[in-house]
């Protein structure tokens, strides 16, 4: 996680101080076919998570043990899992945790890192010191191990608890990016002008600093969403994530690990989760390219 973020941080640090209106940004993005395709794929996965019945009428929990691990059959394109449940329905229903993680941890992470970064960058002194020191402590931990320790001590883990703990431990990197961009924006003429006519600090932050400082964090967040989906799967696979009977791609990997003779148990969730994460990555990549001042004509 932190490795990939380090790379994204270095690749997104040139984006600061850009003012590109939302409409311009959208127009630049819609010109790219790979962006459009990936958005459509992500929308399809979101639909899968919200309305799984659109894609399958089979109940994922209706199982016939006699059909355990059987391959594809007419009406059951992905075959059956070890309990003899229809695997297609299970993979479709497994989209929900991944999508919730991508949405909540993605947007939530953006909000938490953005707000803390704004505060730390705009109010040097006590506020900055407190936020930065807490970030130092969280930064000094290997992310996965910290999540394992914390989640291991939580008895009943729902998707919200997992997302919440990812949010609580994961904000420092984004906060640092935001803080450094705010540093470069806070003494620009328009901010000084707003301050000189007595605009209250919160309004300056909201109207002037945030819109001009959010680009690097936005690019970093979209690039990192795929990693968050993978992280949820890893945590569930390791046994500190979602617990059975919840259906998720991560728990399907966990089962597939013990039944290596039926590869379809692994292949289908792998294809779905990889398509989702690659789509998010390409969307993030396109947004970063669209925001890169060196590429704007």
């Amino acid at each position: 996680m932190s490795e990939a973020q380090q790379v994204f941080e270095s690749e997104t640090q040139d984006l600061e101080g850009r003012t590109l209106s939302n409409r311009e940004l959208l127009r630049a993005l819609l010109k790219k076919p790979q962006f459009v395709i990936c958005v459509l794929l992500v929308v399809a996965v979101f639909l899968m998570a919200a309305f799984p019945r659109l894609f399958t009428s089979v109940d994922p929990r209706f199982c016939e043990l006699g059909k355990s691990q059987r391959g594809r059959e007419p009406g059951h394109p992905f075959g059956f899992d070890i309990q003899g449940c229809d695997y297609f329905a299970n993979v479709i229903y497994g989209a929900r945790p991944s999508v919730l993680v991508s949405l909540v941890a993605g947007f939530g992470g953006f909000a938490v890192a953005g707000i803390l970064g704004l505060l730390a960058g705009y109010f040097p002194g006590a506020v900055d010191t407190i936020i930065s020191r807490v970030a130092d402590v969280l930064f000094a931990l290997p992310g996965l191990i910290a999540l394992i320790v914390i989640l291991n001590s939580v008895p009943n883990r729902s998707i919200w608890i997992i997302v919440g703990i990812i949010l609580v431990t994961g904000w420092p990197q984004g906060m640092r990016v935001m803080r450094s961009t705010v540093f470069s924006v806070r003494n620009r003429e328009y901010v000084l002008a707003a301050r000189s006519i007595g605009v209250p600090p919160l309004r300056i932050l909201r109207k002037h600093v945030f819109p001009n400082a959010m680009a690097p964090l936005l690019a970093m967040t979209t690039l990192g969403i795929g990693g968050l989906i993978g992280l949820e799967a890893v945590l569930t696979f390791l046994g500190v994530g979602l617990q059975p009977p919840s259906i998720s791609w991560g728990s399907q990997f966990g089962v597939a690990a013990s039944y290596r003779d039926s590869p379809h148990l692994f292949i289908w969730p792998a294809i779905f989760i990889s398509t989702t994460t690659i789509s998010f990555m390409i969307i993030g990549d396109s947004i970063r390219d669209a925001l890169d001042p060196k590429l704007i004509r």
Binding site: G230, F237, G250, A257, R260
Partner: peptide, 21 residues
Amino acid sequence: LVVLAVPGLVLYFAGQFLFGV
């Protein structure tokens, strides 16, 4: 881009399946 996007879990399983099994 693809390697950074594909979850490590998928990569490890795929490597094991392809080169091992």
